[in-house]
Simulated assay, not measured.
Amino acid sequence: MLPQFFPPFADAVSLPESPASSSLGKALELLDLFSLTSPLVRIDDVIARFGFPRSTAYRYLKELCDAGLLAPASGGAYSLGPRVIEFERLLELTDPLYRAGQQVLQEIGDPGAVYLLHNLYRDKVLCIYKQGPDVIEYEGRRITVRRARGLPFPLFQGAGSLALLPWLSPHRIRQTYLRNAAEIASSGLGDDWEAFRRVLAAIRRKGYSTSQGTITPFLGGIAVPVLLPEDRKLVGSLAWTVAAGAMTEERVESCAEHLTRAAQAIAREYVKVAADM
């Protein structure tokens, strides 16, 4: 029998309303158009993606510019605005998870290890803090670590992501499955709801997740959730990136124990930082 934290579906399960159902939500959704491959956005891009009338697209772009989230660029294009940089600096100074992770991981002082601290928004996992080298050397091979601060990754790939998923609320897990059943199946996490529940229950019982080569070829990861000490609320995940060839069973167990202690220290520091704000 599966643990109670993964109850079966009710007879009828409905998806929540889209976060973009309001005018504000629709305007903010324009920010999803920006990426490394699309650093500039034009009004025709907005119309093609969302189907807005041209007047509505102009209005949303103007509102985002007025808020400083976008800025006019040459040729009728728009770029991300200066307020994004302001928020980035504010996060570094005030985000409890970032500050707690930075302090604890710097105290650990392992120069050869790559630690990655993650947070979650929507169905994306974002690396908010990285400590360690950008390249890992193993048996003569130099392997670049692709995860870095500010890069989002899918919720269903990589140890840092899989360490978050089983500790979400049962309702959110059900809704996540409904939205992403095909992607979950293609990631090897279960071809149906019951199989998906079993995979998550197994990760949760073990207390950590592992992966090999899902984000970066030749690299693997071990990760644990960051859970607050009082109510066990999930606030993030902590991963250790290593060469996949070095992931022996003994080393995985040792790394998982080390990460669990570090995650507990981060959680305690998180509470202190939040209380001082």
Score class of each variant (00 low, 15 high):
residue 188 G to E: 12
residue 20 A to Q: 07
residue 239 A to Q: 08
residue 119 N to H: 14
residue 230 E to K: 15
residue 12 A to W: 07
residue 232 R to F: 13
residue 1 M to F: 08
residue 254 S to D: 15
residue 214 T to R: 13
residue 190 G to Y: 02
residue 223 A to I: 05
residue 172 R to S: 11
residue 195 A to M: 05
residue 273 V to Q: 04
residue 267 A to N: 00
residue 66 D to I: 07
residue 62 K to N: 08
residue 100 A to L: 11
residue 230 E to N: 13
residue 247 M to P: 09
residue 160 G to M: 03
residue 47 I to L: 09
residue 45 D to K: 03
residue 52 F to A: 05
residue 263 A to R: 00
residue 150 G to W: 09
residue 173 I to Y: 03
residue 87 F to S: 12
residue 41 V to L: 06
residue 198 R to P: 01
residue 210 T to W: 01
residue 64 L to K: 03
residue 31 L to Q: 10
residue 124 K to P: 01
residue 173 I to T: 08
residue 209 S to Y: 06
residue 27 A to D: 00
residue 73 A to C: 03
residue 126 L to H: 06
residue 259 L to P: 00
residue 213 G to R: 05
residue 194 E to Q: 12
residue 221 G to S: 13
residue 51 G to T: 00
residue 178 L to N: 04
residue 173 I to A: 03
residue 118 H to V: 02
residue 128 I to V: 15
residue 221 G to K: 01
residue 177 Y to H: 11
residue 172 R to I: 10
residue 110 D to E: 15
residue 114 V to D: 00
residue 261 R to G: 05
residue 123 D to A: 10
residue 104 V to P: 00
residue 194 E to T: 11
residue 84 V to W: 07
residue 256 A to K: 03
residue 103 Q to A: 15
residue 157 Q to K: 15
residue 56 T to L: 09
residue 186 S to Q: 14
residue 270 Y to Q: 03
residue 247 M to T: 08
residue 249 E to R: 12
residue 191 D to K: 14
residue 161 S to G: 13
residue 201 A to I: 06
residue 48 A to V: 03
residue 115 Y to W: 14
residue 184 I to M: 11
residue 174 R to E: 11
residue 166 P to I: 07
residue 51 G to N: 04
residue 15 L to D: 04
residue 177 Y to R: 10
residue 171 H to E: 15
residue 206 K to M: 11
residue 64 L to A: 01
residue 209 S to G: 08
residue 77 A to D: 05
residue 81 G to F: 01
residue 75 G to R: 07
residue 234 L to R: 04
residue 208 Y to T: 04
residue 202 A to M: 10
residue 212 Q to S: 14
residue 76 G to A: 08
residue 23 S to I: 10
residue 119 N to Y: 08
residue 21 S to T: 13
residue 276 D to S: 15
residue 200 L to G: 01
residue 69 L to W: 06
residue 19 P to R: 05
residue 23 S to T: 13
residue 215 I to K: 02
residue 162 L to A: 04
residue 4 Q to G: 13
residue 269 E to S: 13
residue 70 L to P: 00
residue 179 R to V: 06
residue 197 R to N: 06
residue 221 G to N: 00
residue 82 P to C: 04
residue 89 R to V: 07
residue 235 V to M: 10
residue 215 I to C: 02
residue 11 D to Y: 08
residue 32 D to Y: 14
residue 110 D to P: 10
residue 14 S to M: 07
residue 44 D to C: 09
residue 34 F to N: 02
residue 247 M to A: 09
residue 63 E to G: 06
residue 194 E to W: 01
residue 180 N to P: 05
residue 112 G to W: 07
residue 200 L to D: 00
residue 269 E to Y: 05
residue 211 S to P: 04
residue 136 I to V: 14
residue 139 E to S: 11
residue 187 S to C: 14
residue 31 L to F: 09
residue 101 G to V: 02
residue 89 R to I: 06
residue 264 Q to T: 13
residue 170 P to Y: 12
residue 25 G to Q: 06
residue 187 S to L: 12
residue 90 L to M: 12
residue 216 T to I: 07
residue 197 R to D: 02
residue 119 N to D: 15
residue 140 G to F: 03
residue 43 I to L: 14
residue 86 E to R: 14
residue 171 H to T: 12
